[in-house]
């Protein structure tokens, strides 16, 4: 077994010393896939999964109607309201559930926009040459420097403050980041000999991208998109806090935080509940990103065994 391990430390598998490749290789034992056990991934899935579950349940059931104010203002936790009520007498747990749905939607929506736009733009800039490359790169740099907040204000001014506006603003801003990452990753892959080998094998460019480029940049991209999901959820909460996101009476976590701000000392549950859930979701998603990083790469996968 020495051979196998030595190869690993030098970054190269060991050479069978006779040079004849027909002899059984020690690496064969490592070739079998083993179940991946990543506690990071597991913890992330549990944390984020709870929030997603909350969001899904809110679609079919919630303890009270969203506009039910029968509970009285600022009721404490318990007494028929698990988390109490807000200053208008609405059930906090119901609001938190709706907020979970909005957060997950905001995250997914933004990341979807960022992924589609960003990867396309990134591929385009990676393959572009000369002035087109310069122009597109400059455009991306400007988009990255452009504050999400300002972008959101512009979109809200043109549209109105809705979840869609917030998601569009966040997604656009993130697509620039994704595009730039994609560009770098693609450029790096394009310098590899296996791309040249594909070309001399007669593989067309579209096919090369589909079969060689995307699979090789995918793990890094997925990890980054997971991180972007967390950032998008935070950004949406921020925009809602500022009144640029979901309009009342729909309860976004950011909006709830803003509303509960004034009564934080007397009724902390209104701020703590959305705050804690927000942290759970973002931490969970980041843990998933870390876990994915370790498990998606077939070469590191075996290194851990």
């Amino acid at each position: 077994m020495t051979e196998r391990a030595t190869g690993r430390t030098t970054g190269r598998p060991a050479e069978p010393t006779t040079g004849r490749a027909t002899e059984p290789t020690t690496e064969r034992t490592t070739g079998r896939r083993r179940p991946v056990r990543s506690y990071t991934l597991l913890a992330g899935c549990v944390l984020a999964g709870l929030i997603v579950l909350l969001a899904l349940v809110s679609l079919v059931w919630s303890p009270y109607a969203a506009d039910d104010t029968s509970g009285g203002r600022l009721a404490g936790p318990g007494s028929g309201h698990l988390l109490g009520t807000d200053k208008l007498g609405r059930d906090l747990f119901t609001q938190v559930m709706t907020g979970a749905r909005i957060a997950v939607e905001a995250g997914l929506g933004s990341v979807l926009i960022a992924a589609v736009l960003g990867i396309l733009l990134g591929l385009l800039t990676a393959f572009a040459q000369g002035w087109l490359d310069d122009t597109l790169s400059a455009f991306l740099d400007i988009l990255i420097a452009f504050p999400t907040l300002l972008l959101a204000m512009l979109i809200v001014a043109a549209h109105s403050a809705t979840l869609g506006s917030a998601v569009l603003a966040i997604g656009l801003a993130q697509s620039a980041v994704v595009a730039r990452l994609t560009r770098i990753l693609v450029k790096r892959v394009l310098t590899q000999d296996y791309i040249t080998a594909a070309r001399t094998s007669g593989t067309s460019w579209p096919r090369t991208v589909a079969q060689h480029v995307l699979p090789n940049i995918w793990p890094t991209l997925v990890v980054n998109l997971a991180l972007q999901f967390g950032l998008a959820v935070l950004a949406e909460a921020g925009l809602s806090y500022l009144g640029l996101g979901v309009p009342p009476p729909n309860a976004s976590w950011g909006g709830m935080l803003q509303e509960a701000q004034a009564t934080f000392t007397t009724a902390p549950a209104g701020a703590l509940a959305p705050g804690i859930l927000l942290v759970m979701l973002v931490v969970g998603v980041n843990l998933i990103a870390d876990g994915l990083r370790d498990t998606l790469d077939p070469t590191t996968r075996r290194r851990r065994t």
Partner: peptide
């Protein structure tokens, strides 16, 4: 190619790698 560590796509199985010229042509 010179570097056998960079001339084979790390994410494809050897069967697919060797078949590439046949399939692409």
């Amino acid at each position: 190619f010179q570097d056998p560590y960079s001339s084979l796509d790390p994410r494809r199985r050897v069967g697919d790698i060797v078949a590439e010229p046949l399939r692409s042509l």
